[in-house]
Design a protein around this nucleic acid. Structure first.
Lengths: 343, 343
DNA sequence: CTGAAAGCGCTTACAG
DNA sequence: CTGAAAGCGCTTACAG
């Protein structure tokens, strides 16, 4: 039973003016139409006397925009282990949203739809917000296409390609980052490498692989095996592949793959980096032996989150430009890679 | 300029029915008044065709609920370092909200109000959501009182007391956790301790101190100095206090204080735990020397976040019970405390 | 089974 | 300067 709060009409009645006048007084919109000091004072007295507080919901309805930016993630965040995928982005999103004076609407409702979907019963749920940021690797391309077709303003975190539509996104320069990581290995004398981790989203895997190949192309006699990340599901096969290929360096497409692979290798007595150098093309939370500091490509998630919001706000203001922006990654050298050349 | 979204009236017109009927179909309130399968199908088709989505603001105004749970944090999350204070709670909040089929509204707008406030120009911003979770140590008690007075349903994460009002909260059992940490020190032979970190919110500091004292009371000749955490702002004074008091153990009220203190101690050549044992009464992200594992009291933030949402939903359903729930903490012994007794 | 109407509490032209 | 009215987009009795 929410206490019956006084309304604008109550104030108007008691002050003996119209509700429009009360609204004007309260909103200081006297710019155009000056209101007599006497009326203003009377209204304000009544407001205080009644303890009147405007209902923001009604204000919004009458006013127009929701000043809400939606955030939709295809991956559920519930498995607590995954928190680090999502939150660094969210932090940037929040910071910029605050700066742009927007609130954030996190779409968490299950609504019965089993895998999380933007469209439920054919209805675009994101419409509750003025625009939205979309993330997650399990992106449904068909949904993105529909969003784009209906002109709903959104920005994807991560490059996503949909035929026939230009989609706004911010993405890491995986190609550059992977090339840098690979060059690092080359400089350490590695020539037989394996790339582990083809998996969704396709764009990302392809870019990473591309980066590795770009770097290796510069070197005569270098070889790259390419393994699907499902290989890790069969430990025997994985270890056999490592041994038979006689690689000296393993390039993991992401941190989860890195951790998984490293665990299996260590369990088999393979020393890192003594027997095998390992790098990850993505950073993130990693539950590793305490002394192990991975050599890893770091993404600038905060900045990406911020920029996504900025693009979105631009987009909502002037419904035209669909921008796509790349962010450089940074290689951080740890102790999981070693120099083969003598020393 | 918010895009012109289709409205209920548009759907009704196109489907050739009244808007009331569309509303009924959408809300499945056919309980009382059955609607023909044919009409229902026609309406749903039109809804899909138009991409109609109800405007939550209008739904709220009209008396329905928004199915939105608000999340308000007094501390801004922008300083990226602080992320770990907020997110573990958010994770729990999100999980339970999803389960209860609510979306989350993160209040991030600055709105010009310099320190973040719930009431802007006397308007309760939280009203955009059906209910809200409130967190942060810089809680404004006056605002909480106003919320309670107007009957707005909210749950605080962290115990907050406001005279004359019962406030719903979930909180850690700091007294118990602190007592356990102190007993741990006592068992290791420590008798001269200092408690560092009286600071907001008051409830928390008092409980922690209480826990320490409870434990120490069991031991003859034990002493406890109590230091304000501002002491750390003057390194000289802090180190002098440590030396003059001849303490063997330092109890830090929270992890940030712990990290700050440890840094200052190490910089002065004081070895931990050889020269001084140090514990933290709160866990969290800690940028410490790699080999240092703090002895720390861990909070169950995920569970607290989940429970806060559950209490809130209960509260919103039956507007009566204001519940207050404690969660036990867990002492995790690291290598920053050592045994004084001989060995 | 469905339509017409009132109402939620505000804002904003538009008349006086 | 101020009032009367329309409208924001929905829900909910209440008539048919």
């Amino acid at each position: 039973m929410p206490r019956a709060r006084p309304t604008l009409a109550d104030v108007a009645r008691l002050a003996g003016v119209s509700s429009g006048t009360v609204s004007m007084v309260l909103n200081k919109r006297s710019g155009n139409v000056p209101i007599s000091e006497e009326t203003r004072a009377r209204v304000m007295d009544t407001v205080r006397q009644l303890g009147y507080v405007p209902n923001p919901v009604a204000q919004m309805l009458a006013g127009g925009a929701s000043r809400l930016i939606g955030v939709f993630a295809y991956e559920a965040r519930f498995p607590y282990e995954r928190e680090n995928f999502f939150f660094p982005y969210l932090l940037g999103i929040e910071r910029e949203a605050s700066k742009q004076d927007y609130d954030l609407l996190l779409f968490t409702r299950s609504r019965g739809c089993q895998p999380r979907t933007i469209y439920c019963d054919g209805v675009n749920q994101l419409r509750r917000a003025d625009g939205a940021i979309v993330l997650g690797s399990q992106t449904n391309r068909e949904e993105l296409r529909m969003l784009a077709e209906e002109g709903y303003p959104f920005v994807s975190i991560g490059r996503r390609e949909v035929t026939g539509q230009q989609i706004a996104w911010v993405a890491s320069d995986y190609t550059g980052g992977s090339a840098e990581a690979t060059r690092h290995l080359i400089e350490l004398g590695h020539r037989r490498l394996a790339f582990l981790g083809m998996g969704p989203p396709a764009e990302t895997s392809i870019e990473k692989l591309q980066g590795c190949r770009d770097a290796l192309r510069q070197v005569a006699g270098a070889e790259l095996a390419v393994w699907d990340r499902d290989l890790l599901a069969r430990p025997d096969a994985f270890l056999q592949a490592v041994r038979e290929s006689a690689i000296t360096a393993l390039v993991c497409s992401e941190i989860a793959t890195f951790v998984n692979a490293v665990r299996q290798l260590l369990a088999e007595g393979i020393k890192i980096p003594d027997d095998l150098s390992v790098v990850s093309l993505t950073d993130g939370e990693a539950d590793l032996p305490i002394s192990m500091k991975p050599t890893v490509v770091c993404l600038n998630r905060h900045l990406m989150g911020e920029t996504a919001v900025r693009l979105l706000v631009d987009r909502m203001r002037a419904r035209d430009a669909v921008q796509q922006i790349r962010f450089p990654c940074q290689l951080v050298v740890g102790n999981t890679t070693r120099d083969l050349s003598g020393c």
